[in-house]
């Protein structure tokens, strides 16, 4: 019965990189950690070794080689994702391995370090590695939680549609606001020219746009409209306000979307530079260890 049910399932279903191939890489990562952990214990038993000075034992060299190899391979995701290949090594499999093997580095590198830390190049490399891993974990959490919200936040519109709508509203605003008083026109002009959809880094992450010229213009012009009697000016102002309201609504939607997208991207600003910094520090670590052998 279950076989029948399974066969009815759609052949292609979405499977996140975390669950890829029944968590194959999670198990491989755990296995690798266990191997290295076992090596550490064996080394302790063989030499009565304490936590310190593990780096210069056979365990240290082995775990260091594994760790360095892993780091180089993990960094190669940056190259792999730019390559088009057949499905043999799908990008999803690669990302799954990237995540779980990257996490296993916490165990491998920590045992390699022997918890001997200080203000030196070795600890710098370790700290950078942890920074890369932690930022990566943040990225995973974001990727696990946000994409659904992301498409929800856009509703039915695409990025391009949102932009075009704002552009159109801006063009009409310029047109409609022509009869307005100079200071009112200036507000509209500012709203059209100075409104930034994304804004600064913090604005993108927080979604806070309190000083947005469009919002300001709407607020000021609404107040002005309240003081105004009917007339051709009032009609123009009404039209302007209506357009501004629409623009603000569109902006709010776009900004929610941008905020979510920024959260999806921001960790990469730590992950990628820290990775390259780690490669440099790792090189310095390895060279220095053998230089002053």
């Amino acid at each position: 019965m279950s076989t029948t049910e399974q066969s009815r399932r759609p052949v292609i279903s979405h499977e996140s990189f975390l669950r890829h191939a029944h968590f194959r890489w999670l198990w491989i990562g755990l296995f690798l950690s266990l191997i290295v952990g076992g090596g550490f214990v064996a080394s302790c038993l063989a030499h009565g070794m304490r936590l310190k000075h593990t780096g210069s034992s056979w365990f240290g060299y082995a775990s260091g080689t594994i760790g360095a190899g892993l780091i180089v391979w993990l960094a190669c995701l940056g190259i792999r994702k730019r390559l088009m290949t057949d499905n043999a090594w799908s990008l999803k499999a690669w990302v799954s391995a990237h995540v779980y093997l990257g996490l296993s580095l916490i165990v491998i590198a920590t045992l390699h370090s022997g918890l001997q830390f200080g203000w030196n190049i070795h600890t710098l490399a370790y700290a950078l590695m942890l920074l890369v891993i932690v930022s990566g974990i943040f990225g995973i959490v974001m990727y696990a939680r946000l994409p659904e919200k992301l498409s929800d936040s856009r509703g039915e519109t695409t990025q391009k549609q949102m932009l075009e709508k704002i552009n159109q509203l801006d063009a009409r605003l310029l047109d409609v606001a022509r009869p307005l008083e100079q200071n009112q026109a200036a507000l509209v002009r500012r709203a059209v020219q100075k409104t930034r959809i994304g804004g600064s880094f913090l604005q993108r992450l927080t979604g806070w746009h309190g000083n947005c010229p469009s919002l300001l213009a709407f607020r000021e012009l609404s107040a002005a409209r309240a003081r105004m009697t009917e007339g051709s000016q009032a009609t123009a102002l009404d039209q302007t306000l209506s357009l501004l309201e629409e623009k603000n609504a569109t902006l709010a939607k776009a900004r929610r979307y941008i905020r979510l997208r920024s959260l999806l991207e921001v960790w990469l600003y730590i992950h990628i530079p820290a990775t390259l910094a780690l490669m440099a520090a790792l090189t310095a670590h390895i060279v220095s260890v053998f230089f002053f052998w």
Binding site: I121, R196, E265, A280, A284, V287
Partner: peptide, 28 residues
């Protein structure tokens, strides 16, 4: 650039290379 952080923040690549070059220069 409204939808990508790239335009709100420094370039990842620039930061990455700066850090890497600094570390290689000072620490190696």
């Amino acid at each position: 650039g409204a939808f990508s952080l790239k335009y709100a923040l420094f370039s990842q690549r620039w930061l990455a290379w700066t850090l890497a070059v600094l570390i290689v220069a000072l620490c190696l």
